[in-house]
């Protein structure tokens, strides 16, 4: 197996607060990798560092062997890292279809003139892009509402639309920030299966942040635990579950 993502002593401080503190780990290709920890442990900040939305204070990150530490977010996206957001960030006034089509930006070519003039190439590209977006919407069962504005969707639909949008980027690595938030346990079970399915279908590596421990334990191949910005445990679910440091982090005080 090949290392797809390598984090090396990645650190981010906001003023005096060190949100991510010397965190190092590697994610293997094809893995479902869980990131857990109490609120404020630095999980989302770590996602922001990996996707380039927040520049690191120090440390390095490599994606498929390439140093992406100082890369800008859209470059990182182009390299094949897609994500969803903890507090859903869809393009609210655009339709579901347009939301998904936007994420194909880097895989399409047509410029201002060819787009405006509607050259055959541009038209073909537009059609392909639309077809693929519809396919992804079908995958998350939103194809019947492709033309509706994203902001009118229910919370659960918005979460699924965000995943479809992330998939449209054709990523190698997919970062899911609390994909199961707001779901009941039935829905969470469905979500586990869905994540496994898309991993197989799209050859993905998945890193996910999740609070619901049973879901993480059942789904992930390996788990990293963060507490106060530091990595306190890393390993297969059964090992992490019994790690005294983890138990203390969750039950301590």
């Amino acid at each position: 197996m090949q290392t797809i993502l390598k984090i090396d002593r990645l650190t981010r401080a906001f003023g005096g607060l060190v949100a991510v503190d010397q965190v190092s780990f590697e994610v293997q290709e094809g893995e479902i990798f869980g990131l857990i920890g109490p609120n404020g442990a630095g999980k989302t900040t770590l996602f922001n560092l990996i996707t380039g939305l927040t520049p690191p204070t120090s440390g390095k990150q490599f994606f498929l062997g390439e140093d992406l530490t100082a890369a800008r977010p859209h470059i990182i996206a182009t390299k094949g890292i897609a994500r969803t957001f903890q507090n859903i960030r869809l393009f609210g006034n655009l339709s579901a279809l347009e939301n998904v089509m936007v994420a194909q930006h880097v895989h399409t070519r047509s410029g201002v003139l060819s787009g405006v003039l509607g050259t055959p190439t541009a038209r073909r590209e537009q059609q392909q892009s639309r077809d693929y977006a519809m396919e992804l919407l079908r995958l998350v069962h939103l194809d019947d509402r492709a033309e509706a504005q994203a902001r009118n969707f229910s919370y659960g639909d918005q979460r699924r639309l965000e995943i479809a949008r992330a998939l449209a980027l054709r990523p190698k690595l997919l970062l899911l920030d609390e994909p199961g938030a707001g779901m009941n346990s039935n829905e969470k079970a469905g979500l586990s299966q869905f994540i496994r399915d898309i991993r197989a279908q799209f050859n993905l590596t998945v890193v996910l942040i999740e609070h619901h421990v049973p879901l993480v334990m059942g789904l992930c191949d390996r788990i990293a635990v963060l507490n106060f910005g530091q990595l306190i445990a890393l390993g297969v679910p059964s090992a992490v579950q019994n790690d005294p440091a983890v138990v203390e982090a969750y039950l301590g005080e």
Partner: peptide, 24 residues
């Protein structure tokens, strides 16, 4: 068009748009 959609995405949420590969 493709470029227009990228524009609209930037207007809606610049951060999310860049995370989807749009060069701001």
């Amino acid at each position: 068009s493709r470029v227009g959609r990228a524009f609209a995405a930037l207007r809606e949420d610049e951060l999310a748009a860049t995370a989807m590969g749009v060069n701001p």
